[in-house]
Design a protein around this nucleic acid. Structure first.
Lengths: 327, 327
DNA sequence: TTGTAAGCGTTATCAA
DNA sequence: TTGATAACGCTTACAA
């Protein structure tokens, strides 16, 4: 009752295992007749080659590891979806890991992926020291973080995005701006969004304040607390640049619940361009990153490295201002 | 520069590979001294056992396959997160597949998972004929669908949920109800939500209408079209029972944009209890399923079967009405 | 064109 | 207690 092996197929087809393997991999010259015979045996036995054995033998698993903070976060959910889809199209499988931004979990996951002999790792989470990533010795691609000179990274044009967002708020007349973003100790490139914010407001002489989530990020309840804090200390803020659409959505909610009219009393702009923003009213003005293209490129960069090609290190995607109803 | 193998460790520790394997798996009696020696060699070499080889040898991969329509859908994203988390805690890895409700893709994924010798498959998508699943010959668990008498399934108490939802709308005074749910040809248990709706409205003599998404479901744009259609044909609907929170969110949006006040002019209730509903204003009234517990159970049921234990077939989770601001 | 046999890195069965 | 050695199911020189 066990799964049939290549040996069973060989036996039934009356050929050697080598021949079956050849048919399986379409290597060398094979007569149509032979092929038919072997394929026939396979069908009859409902044979499925054992990928574990193939992987072991070829020293190649055709598996890509993906580590993200939380798949349940809309941005990473979308990203993971596109990555899986693109990997699948290229005959690769996806081993999914949620780090929850927990260092030991992330380390465990990396260890596990290496033990599983994945062909490469896409890191959407990177809470460890740079050293940890340099020791991976596998094709790696990161999102939104430059780890070293030889690990390619993918990000949106964060500074430009921050610029567009802040400029829009200022141009629409905001004079008391707040920025809400990730923790500065998370050494991520998205901090450039804040840098741009800072540059613009100072250059234009606009009053401003900045809040950031705690180092474990992505805690939705914390977003609510943060906004409460903001409105308590600066009730007259008239513009918010949120570093993600999810934060922006919470900002919108906080405004509504505190009787602030959006966009009349206060304007809000987010970042990411997650497709779920379409379910909000008004739809949030945002800086859109090309999430699908970024996910695809991550897979491509892994595959290129797997094939021994060298790849460019820096991959900055253009962003686009998408005006919604909150500005 | 290749990864060290058990042989290298044996050599460096001055023992046989058998002994190293014993230490690795903590089998038999091993003196502390021996252990120290072997572990030392492992550390020195930065050795990681090759899981492909182990899996092949033990005929057990410690991988669970998960097939969902879209991880990017909030419900499945949350579910996948919990499943990964629980699997990880038990030393299992997660191979993630998005079927996008595409039959051939789902079939491919099942084939791929079988070839990869996963220890079990959790099906959150099931667009194929029952026969296809019976041929899997692996531990399987499904969400929201009864496939046969020997494939365990997990679902929320759909009928009860539909009852609670519909009753609430009626009790709050709605007299023209609409239900929006999945396509009836998708043979899923969540259709019971609609059945309950139907039963209640007929029993209470309430005017009602029912819309459903197309068979490929989960197309957010379609939700918008559906609502447009609803309001066009029945502008005076005063209560909507949406079969998911995402649909409910779109309903809320459509109401807002068409000048309907929620909950004064029209009431809305959703289903699922996704955590993202917290970012809407007002927060959507919903029927909450215990998503985390359901995800955990899915993993547990796979593990039980892997260990050769028999498991109960039916796992219906209680639902809870969570009153928000839309009713 | 087809087959034999070694090897991929483990675990497991026997002996010693 | 420890160690040869044969699996596990496949690929791939090398021969024929």
């Amino acid at each position: 009752m066990d799964m049939p092996t290549i040996k069973d197929v060989a036996l039934k087809a009356g050929v050697s295992v080598t021949t079956v393997s050849r048919v399986l991999n379409n290597r060398g010259y094979l007569s149509e007749e032979l092929k038919a015979k072997v394929y026939g045996a396979m069908k009859e036995l409902n044979y499925r080659p054992n990928e574990l054995a193939r992987s072991l033998s070829r020293s190649k698993s055709n598996i890509i590891g993906l580590i993200v903070p939380h798949v349940s976060h809309p941005f990473f959910g979308e990203l993971a979806g596109h990555i899986e889809d693109h990997a699948y199209r290229h005959g690769y499988k996806l081993l999914l890991c949620n780090s929850q931004l927990d260092k030991s979990k992330e380390l465990d996951h990396i260890d596990m992926l290496r033990s599983s002999r994945v062909d490469g790792i896409i890191m959407g989470s990177h809470t460890l020291e740079v050293e940890a990533y340099n020791q991976i010795h596998l094709p790696v691609v990161t999102f939104d973080r430059k780890l070293s000179d030889d690990i390619p990274y993918i990000c949106s044009d964060n500074y430009k995005g921050g610029l567009l967002a802040t400029t829009l708020l200022v141009d629409r007349g905001c004079r008391k701006l707040a920025h809400i973003g990730g923790h500065p100790h998370l050494n991520v490139l998205s901090l450039d969004r804040h840098k741009a914010f800072q540059d613009i407001v100072e250059q234009r002489g606009i009053w401003h304040t900045s809040l950031h989530t705690d180092i474990n990020g992505f805690n939705f309840h914390e977003y609510e607390r943060l906004l409460e804090l903001l409105f308590q200390e600066h009730p007259d803020v008239d513009g918010i640049f949120a570093s993600s659409d999810v934060i922006a959505a919470y900002a919108l909610k906080a405004c509504r619940e505190s009787g602030r009219r959006v966009p009349e009393d206060i304007k809000i702009i987010g970042y990411d361009g997650i497709s779920l923003r379409g379910l909000l009213t008004p739809s949030i003005t945002t800086i859109r990153q090309p999430i699908e293209a970024m996910g695809k490129l991550a897979v491509d960069l892994i595959l290129e490295q797997v094939e021994g090609h060298s790849v460019a290190m820096e991959h900055i995607f253009p962003v686009e201002l998408e005006v919604g109803g909150t500005t």
